[in-house]
Amino acid sequence: MRNTLRTAMFLLFAVLILGACGNSNKDVGKGPDKPLQQDNTLSVKTDVEGGSLDSGKGYGFDKFDLEIEVDGQEVVDVQYAVAKSHSASYKNKLAGLNLEGTEAFNKLDKLFMDINLTKDMAKQDVIDKIMKWFGLDTYTRFELEVDFDDGTKLDIDESK
């Protein structure tokens, strides 16, 4: 009787274990060959008239060339180009910075995000924002060239 009870308990245990480990494909979308959820489709909205930071095409421009002179000495020289060379340099003699490549891109990212340059900005607003960002009160020469994604250009060449 004792052996019969042991055998019955062993068989009951085996049936429970095998039943719990079984694979039933009755549920739709489950099982080893079927994904648990549907893949989502990503849709992206793009601007028709050039790029912008919102459309994922960078800062809205692909060339930014800035030179600022104070008392006849060049103190700021910034170059950013992505259309042809994907390069950047950032020189600020007042802060003792001479950056190239990734370090320059990182510094320029802060500049571009803070000044939020657009093609519709007034030239004096552009000058004021850039001068404030660099902590400068005056300049003897301010030269800026920007090529926006939509083909428009901003050229400022001011001397005092």
Rank of each mutant, 00 (worst) to 15 (best):
D39K: 08
P32T: 10
V48S: 09
G29W: 00
F13P: 01
N40K: 15
F10N: 03
L18M: 07
V28W: 01
F13K: 11
V44G: 05
V15G: 09
K30A: 12
K45A: 04
K45V: 02
G29Q: 11
P32K: 14
G19V: 03
L12K: 04
K34L: 11
G22V: 05
F10H: 06
A14H: 01
V48K: 13
D27N: 15
F10T: 03
G19Y: 11
V48N: 08
V48G: 01
P35C: 06
Q37R: 09
K45N: 01
G22E: 03
D47G: 10
D47T: 13
V48E: 08
D27R: 11
T46W: 02
K30Y: 12
N25H: 01
T46L: 14
Q38L: 08
T41H: 10
D39Y: 03
T41D: 11
K30M: 10
C21F: 12
L11T: 10
V28N: 05
T41S: 10
E49G: 07
V48A: 10
V44Q: 09
G31Y: 11
G29M: 12
G31M: 05
N23V: 14
Q38K: 15
N40Q: 14
G31P: 04
P35K: 11
V48Y: 10
C21T: 14
V15Y: 05
T46P: 00
N23S: 15
V28E: 12
D47N: 11
K34H: 03
L36M: 07
N25G: 08
L36F: 09
I17F: 15
K30R: 14
D27W: 07
K26G: 03
L36R: 10
T46M: 11
T46D: 02
N40G: 14
S24N: 04
G22M: 07
K45E: 14
G31C: 08
K34R: 15
T46H: 06
S24W: 00
G29E: 06
